[in-house]
Design a protein around this nucleic acid. Sequence first.
DNA 1: TAGATTGTTAATCGATTAACAATC
DNA 2: TAGATTGTTAATCGATTAACAATC
Lengths: 213, 213
Amino acid sequence: MKKAYISKNVIRRLPRYLRKLDELRAAGVERISSGELGARTGLTPSQIRQDFSCFGEFGQQGYGYNVASLREEIAHILGMDLQRSVILVGTGRIGQSLIENISFERLGCRLMGAFDIRPELIGTCIGDIAVQNASGMRNFIREHGIDIAILSTNRTYAHSIAEGLIAAGIRAIWNFTEEEIDPGESGVIVESIHFSDSLLELSYYLSQQRNDR
Amino acid sequence: MKKAYISKNVIRRLPRYLRKLDELRAAGVERISSGELGARTGLTPSQIRQDFSCFGEFGQQGYGYNVASLREEIAHILGMDLQRSVILVGTGRIGQSLIENISFERLGCRLMGAFDIRPELIGTCIGDIAVQNASGMRNFIREHGIDIAILSTNRTYAHSIAEGLIAAGIRAIWNFTEEEIDPGESGVIVESIHFSDSLLELSYYLSQQRNDR
DNA sequence: TAGATTGTTAATCGATTAACAATC
DNA sequence: TAGATTGTTAATCGATTAACAATC
């Protein structure tokens, strides 16, 4: 029975299921039970079945789940078949490394443009796209109906540029700056990766380790 | 009253409190109540007081919390005063951008070395440290008592290198590869940043947006 | 002193786990 | 058919919120 609201915890687990299923598929495994998937992910079979049942009935009693079709169901739930258009805003080393390392196509995204304010970077290429002057960003977003902006500028500009993106009608911001981006009433989705938060968490657990000084 | 076990949710909020407190301090604010901090973070005052009370009594009735001293308490809880030693393993663009963008000193870490297997990178400089041949990594970790390895290699090598790090006695791995690193029985702490998981979460919420196709 | 705000206990809410009938 | 495993309901556990006495 499909649910209306799905909790953040469930959504956070979906990409992990997807990765595991990709692995299984690559290894030639055709079917998997919640029990085995649980053993491989460290989750309980109950939780896995609960998670899936939020979205529909993907399994078969006595059999389990078909790896390939479950994989497709999850990919669909995550919107991977919707061909999102993406721009890169801020083409410093973080931005470049993201473009280089993430296979956007595989995730259902297409990189459409890259923007910067530094004259020396404008015109240079990142992957197979040329960096444009940020002054043209607003029009570009409107004309191409850009869905997602990767925000990887210097943190000094983060807020003003985010405002500009929202005003231009962007639908989501993938934020790599240390600043907190507030979408206000716009309904824009903000997903942040705060490197230092992650390192500090690690630091905490390190100080809890038995053999710590 | 201090608690023995602190939940992951609480720990995840601490760096956010820290950032907010740094902002307040920079803005010259001396004291803050849980109510106001709640308004600024989007959390409830209750939750904030509960979180802090896991670690001790940092406030004063009728007054609230002193910004500077609360900031120091949280920094201490997070182990930011312990001067962790860090190495970079894999010096491609991600690795480089991390070194360039994260102020390790401010987070209580010191970058001690960088390693790669690609001959053309060995000897080049990242920030102010020279890239060394990965063959010397094990000894380096032992000699310098390295705490944390930033794993930013090609995903192909992720597992074998992680094994090497663990065998060499590393205490924590900050994982930027798409692979899941399993510490086994070693007690090594693994904190992963999976870029694509984050983008897929964003993609899900995008597909739930009212005005989505 | 009076007002404000904490730390903590109790109540509520939500998420995870267990159990089991349904069924492949 | 018998065994396996689902989807779902109920039970448990944990986290968040509310309430309030203590006290600055």
